[in-house]
Design a protein around this nucleic acid. Sequence first.
DNA 1: CTCCTCTGCGTAATCGTTTAAGTGATACAT
DNA 2: ATGTATCACTTAAACGATTACGCAGAGGAG
Lengths: 338, 338
Amino acid sequence: MVSIKDIAKRCGVSTATVSKALNGQPDIGEETRERILHLADELGYMANATARALKTNRSYNVGVLFVDPMHGGLAHEFFSTVLDGIRSEAEKHGYDITFINRNVGSRQTSYLQHCRYRGVDGVVIASADFNDPMVTELVQSDLPVVTIDHIFNNRISVMSDNMQGMEELVRYAASKGHRKIAIIHGELTGVTQNRLTGFHRACEEFGITVPEEWIREGVFHDPASCQRITKELLAMPERPTCIFFPDDYSWIGGYNAIRDAGLKVPQDISAVGYDGIPLSRIMSPVLTTWRQDTEKLGTIAADRLIEQIEHPRTVILDREIVTGSLQSGGTVGEIQTR
Amino acid sequence: MVSIKDIAKRCGVSTATVSKALNGQPDIGEETRERILHLADELGYMANATARALKTNRSYNVGVLFVDPMHGGLAHEFFSTVLDGIRSEAEKHGYDITFINRNVGSRQTSYLQHCRYRGVDGVVIASADFNDPMVTELVQSDLPVVTIDHIFNNRISVMSDNMQGMEELVRYAASKGHRKIAIIHGELTGVTQNRLTGFHRACEEFGITVPEEWIREGVFHDPASCQRITKELLAMPERPTCIFFPDDYSWIGGYNAIRDAGLKVPQDISAVGYDGIPLSRIMSPVLTTWRQDTEKLGTIAADRLIEQIEHPRTVILDREIVTGSLQSGGTVGEIQTR
DNA sequence: CTCCTCTGCGTAATCGTTTAAGTGATACAT
DNA sequence: ATGTATCACTTAAACGATTACGCAGAGGAG
């Protein structure tokens, strides 16, 4: 490959001059710079990121940590969308992305070690077990870090507004006359906590009391568990008129249970999802759900991280909240007074 | 960070000795090696990938090229699954992944330039416009390359067995008595060509003739276009008993059209998808489809690439074909003789 | 005793860049 | 004439590792 040396030789200048010309340093004559730039272009010169990184200690590489042993890697729509946001934003700023895992070469190490090994300039922690000591080690390191959907002290985080999302959904259901609402929520993570808080707050607002047996723990992204729980809910002597599901995808399981019970949506029972994945608009009836701006979660995270990398001073502790939008569909029907 | 120098100093040996000890070179005394390894461990030493790459010209990084302007990046389930396969296989071998795009720093370049800039050891080209001159430039470069679902001369490629998949699907439909089969296919890429070949071949096998107006070009992964075309097919005077869709996801559009026409699946009309995404099993009726082993596509591609990187000599031109499996569901019903 | 072969380690160059410090030339002010 | 500032470069070290080569000492063979 053509290096700075080749250009230097052919231009009759030193490598330092070439480097400076290429980097727009001021102490290079206009004519010399032109010559160098032209030749570089002609030879198809491309800087060597490796050498540059070694010298400057800046790799223009951001790590992305994502661990989701339960629901199978990148194929998880939530994460792949977030990742796409991170990726496109990083790309804009000239950064590349490296997935952080626990292997380097044939050895097992920690996430932090992997980051150091690759010399990433910062990390986005997108979905992980935030109690994992290896994750906290990373969070407490001196690397710039942005977390998504989880708050750490002294760390920037980008959150989806789960509380508001839930509140809006409850309000919508209430506006359609529903007072008997059940909820199947996901595993008890921070996200779930926020959603439940929003749920209860809005219920209170409308004077809705939710019996305990209508608050059920399911599994995110898992239609099977939702199908089972929905079936149980429908079998209760007192039946809810509206069921909230952990997310749009798991709703498919709920739908199956409802249909199997010989009931119709939304005539006999109403449904509410969460996420706003494309599927929810395509299926019919169109699902009422909260559309998280998942990609924006990624772009903002990347943007904040890069800002932190490039201007370590100016960053004040930042807690960006990404709001989504209500996407109302035919799954929540007007309650019939009979 | 602790470097090889620190270890050398504290062990009273040269950096060369440390390097050799760490890399398992034979010309180091057993006792010295022990001391070095211990200390390295104690100090939490981690090699610097950047420095190593600069010296050895091996980055242990593979590029992944994926361009899909139509259907929105990583969120495309097919690709995110392939990517996950690539990622996990690469990880096993101690490689990291870099997305190849056309930016380096603030400048626009070619894919090949980006690869050179990052010094990737090889590239997997997973989904791209294979006619794009920038893609062919990359394919014709001296970098190890593996392509997915597309064949280039002198390049290793990993293919999903689209022909066989289609044949099996037609056979299955035929076995259920269908003779009036329509097909909505995707854009005319190599993949589509193969599927159509398989389709026609199997039709011939069963003496099925397909009128031209039943062979329609739709768009992959696009329920809307399928909904439109399905509607048109249903409105024809002579109606097919079975419709093949470009993929499982677009089938949702087809389903909507069928339902809107007041027809039932599979009683009135049968449906066949392609891909075998989780959705197809969850929805009901369960969709008959060809389950591509998409993740395997990724793992094999990564495996072949790494083999090519590490043993340039031993690789003979390789054309791996990944076979999927028939996933038969209730969407293809027995034809009723009336 | 000499010669040779191993063994175990050190020396130093090198990968491609960046950058602090130095240098020589010219110009200008004093 | 002398000092000083500016400009446009060069020199050389450094980033952290790898590796060809050299070399001293031990041990064995002759």
